[in-house]
Amino acid sequence: MGLVALVAAALVGFWELYHWVWVSTGWTWPFVVNDTSMPHVWTIYNAFGEPAQVNQPALINVLLHKAAFTAKEAAAGFGLGAVIGFVLAVVLAHVRLLQRGFLPYIVGSQTVPILAIAPMVVLWVNPRLPGSLQGWGAVAVIATYLTFFPVTINTLRGLQSADPRALELMRTYAASRWAVLWKLRVPASLPYLFSALRLAATASVVGAIIGELPTGLQDGLGGAIINFNQYYSIEPQELWATNVIAAALGIAFFVIVVLAEKAFVRRAPEETA
């Protein structure tokens, strides 16, 4: 915890130092530094307390609401993506032919720029969702798309990582494939699965934010980013404040997964030099 505070202080210090040096010397590489491009840390801090627009609550409240909205999409995407990824990995681990056939496309699926197909996904998914799920549901689908991939790849590797001697032992117990899966492969794959879930946590937040951009949803952080981007030259600190909240959301999801891992996984400490 102390280390986090130290790093935070160092970042703030570095930021202000960079600001001061670049302003004093007038360097323009890599980019021009002034109060607009790099607002002071305290400007950003103060912006949280003020309302962004007239007759609105303080920025921090607005942003937290939007963060909660985006979090809802990300969490749904995370859950769905994790389940789909896990099931897909189990199927691929057991049917080599399917694995060879589908794996290249699963990898390839991630090269499709999600932002580009997001509008089509939204147009197609929204009408098919019940009323209460519309809007954010489509974004959750996009978040799922980004989440399932790391889960599939890592879980597959984990399922295949069982010690061959342990597999042989299972043969001596005449174990069914189901038993081998649940008693050996899945527990052995947990470290890999959690490594995947850490990536998935981030991916789901990114997916949720990206998904909100073309859909024009005002309720989430993506909408806030577009909004504040439009008057960045006047009030840069508001976009920065939004980004701070977005960063905090991503980190929060990540930390939850890390804590869950600590609770669930017990394994031998690693030996490194």
Binding site: R165, A166, L169, R171, T172, L184, A188, V265, R266, R267
Partner: peptide, 18 residues
């Protein structure tokens, strides 16, 4: 083997860490 008539011990203990 199917009836569990024997037990086997290898050179490595092959215990489950978890």
């Amino acid at each position: 083997r199917r009836d569990g008539d024997y037990g086997i011990v290898f050179q490595e203990a092959v215990l489950y860490d978890w």
